[in-house]
C-alpha cells in the first residue's frame, strides 16, 4: 500500500525521466560513466542513494523487488531500502532471486543465474577505477576518452610487487566491450565472471559521485590482468557449513572467543533454498547427528 503523500517510488516524474535518460545513455555506451543530477535521498550517502535512485527510475507497479546487502536480504541496509520502496511504491517484494524482477544489490551478484527479465541495480561508492592513482577528475575523464588505461595496470603491478599476487579481491577493475575500464562496485572478484555475458540488464548508480553506468545484457566484460598473473576468481577453499555448497561465495564467521569459525554462503536466499531442498553442510549434519 502506497503512502499517498509520496509520488510513486519517492522521486518526482521529471527526476525519474532525467535518471532514465542517463540510464539509456549508459546502456548505449557500456561502461561509460554518465553524469546525472543526483538528488538528496532520505538516507545518508553510503547507504545506497545511487542505487535507490536508479531503482526508483526503473520500478513499475508490477515489479517484484529484492534488495540484498553483501548477499543477505536481512541486514539493516537491505531491510530499510526494501521497506522504503514498499512504502513509497507499493511494489511487491521477495527474497527469492528467481522471483524478483528488479534486484538492488550492495557488493554481491546473486548465485542463482539471472535472466533477461531481470534488472540488477548496483550501489556504487566510488565509480572511478583510476582514482586510486590519479586523483584529478579532469585527467581521469581524459584518460577514459582517450583509452589511456596503462595506469590501471600500474595498480595491479603494485599489488603483485607488494603481495606476490594480485591482492585486489573486490572492486576488481574490468574492461567492457574492449573499450571502457569500469569499476564493478565492491563485489568480490569471485563475482566478476558473472558480469560478462549476463542475460539481465546491469545498472550501476553512484549517488554521492553523481554517476550512472550500465552493462546491457550479454556484454563482454574482461577482468584486467597480466599474461603471467592471470585473473582468478577466488573464494575461501571450503564448502558452506550450512548447505554444503562448494561453488558459492562464502562469508567467514567467527563463532566463539576460541577463534572457531564457520564458512557460510554469503547469498542467504541461495543457502536457504539449498537447505530447503535437502542439502546439508558440516554444521547442519553435526546438529542433525546430535
Amino acid at each position: 500500500m502506497t503512502d499517498q503523500s509520496y509520488n510513486f517510488a519517492y522521486l518526482d516524474e521529471q527526476t525519474k525521466r532525467m535518471i532514465r535518460r542517463a540510464i539509456l545513455k549508459g546502456i548505449a555506451v557500456p561502461g561509460y560513466q554518465v553524469p546525472f543530477a543526483s538528488r538528496e535521498m532520505p538516507m545518508p550517502y553510503g547507504w545506497g542513494t545511487g542505487g535507490v535512485q536508479v531503482t526508483a527510475a526503473c520500478l513499475t507497479p508490477e515489479d517484484r523487488l529484492k534488495v540484498i546487502d553483501q548477499g543477505a536480504d536481512d541486514t539493516t541496509n537491505a531491510v530499510s531500502i526494501r521497506k522504503f520502496f514498499q512504502r513509497t511504491a507499493g511494489v511487491a517484494t521477495t527474497e527469492a532471486t528467481a522471483e524478483a524482477t528488479l534486484i538492488q544489490t550492495r557488493h554481491r551478484i546473486p548465485e542463482h543465474p539471472l535472466t533477461e527479465d531481470q534488472i540488477l541495480v548496483y550501489q556504487v561508492p566510488i565509480p572511478e577505477p583510476l582514482r586510486f592513482l590519479e586523483p584529478r577528475e579532469t585527467e581521469t575523464r581524459k584518460m577514459h576518452s582517450l583509452e589511456e588505461y596503462g595506469l590501471m595496470h600500474v595498480k595491479l603491478y603494485e599489488d603483485i610487487a607488494r603481495h606476490g599476487s594480485i591482492a585486489t579481491s573486490y572492486a576488481y577493475p574490468v574492461k567492457v566491450e574492449g573499450r571502457y575500464v569500469m569499476d564493478p562496485s565492491p563485489i568480490p572478484k569471485f563475482d566478476n565472471p558473472k558480469l560478462g555475458d549476463c542475460p539481465a540488464l546491469q545498472l550501476f548508480g553512484a549517488g554521492r559521485e553523481q554517476r550512472i553506468y550500465a552493462l546491457p545484457p550479454h556484454t563482454q566484460v574482461v577482468s584486467l590482468d597480466f599474461d603471467d598473473h592471470p585473473f582468478q576468481a577466488t573464494k575461501a577453499p571450503h564448502d558452506c557449513d550450512l548447505c554444503g555448497a562448494s561453488e558459492s561465495y562464502l562469508d567467514e564467521v567467527i563463532v566463539d572467543d576460541a577463534g572457531n569459525r564457520m564458512f557460510v554462503c554469503s547469498d542467504t536466499d541461495f543457502c536457504r533454498s539449498r537447505r530447503e531442498a535437502g542439502h546439508a553442510g558440516r554444521l547442519t549434519m553435526q546438529e542433525a547427528a546430535e
Partner: peptide, 16 residues
C-alpha cells in the same frame, strides 16, 4: 618499479 613500468604498461606491456 611501478614508476618505471608505467610507460611500458601505457604502451601495452602486459607481462609482469
Amino acid at each position: 618499479g611501478g614508476n618505471v613500468g608505467e610507460r611500458l604498461m601505457a604502451v601495452g606491456a602486459r607481462h609482469y
